[in-house]
């Protein structure tokens, strides 16, 4: 699950600041839910998300299990200009990784 769906990212310049919106595709299992066969679904959740702007790290988000499924984040970066590279990398508790990049419009 999640493999067929893609992480999405948008970055837009607005009133001098950059607005970044990210939608990651991840089941975020807490490890407490049960599946149809009444077996516990093992925990699988994103632990660490980091954001780079033009190879400068600007934000790091540590997540627990209580972040909703398919995590969504929106935040602002001071300044910036069109064409800036914004990159997000995430790692989950099982070591799976993902990268998603975009340019500011």
């Amino acid at each position: 699950m999640g493999l067929s769906e893609k992480d999405r990212i948008r970055a837009k310049l607005k009133a001098g600041d950059t607005t970044v919106r990210v939608l990651l595709s991840h089941p975020m299992h807490t490890g407490r839910a049960k599946n149809d066969a009444d077996k516990l679904i093992p925990a699988e959740f994103i632990q660490d998300i980091r954001c780079w702007r033009n190879s400068e790290e600007v934000l790091s988000i540590k997540c627990g299990t209580a972040t909703a499924r398919n995590p969504y984040f929106s935040f602002h970066l001071v300044g910036g200009q069109q064409g800036d590279q914004i990159a997000i990398r995430w790692v989950d508790n099982l070591g799976a990784k993902g990268t998603v990049e975009t340019t500011v419009i």
Binding site: D17, T30, C51, R53, E56, E57, V58, L59, S60, I61, K62, C63, G64, T65, A66, T67, A68, P71, Y72, F73, S74, F75, H76, L77, V78, G79
Partner: peptide
């Protein structure tokens, strides 16, 4: 504990997200 953000001076609120 749901999440913990470490912000640099280049980062700014508002911050939005979804939680359980």
């Amino acid at each position: 504990l749901v999440m913990s953000l470490e912000m640099t001076s280049a980062c700014k609120l508002p911050f939005k997200s979804m939680i359980k």
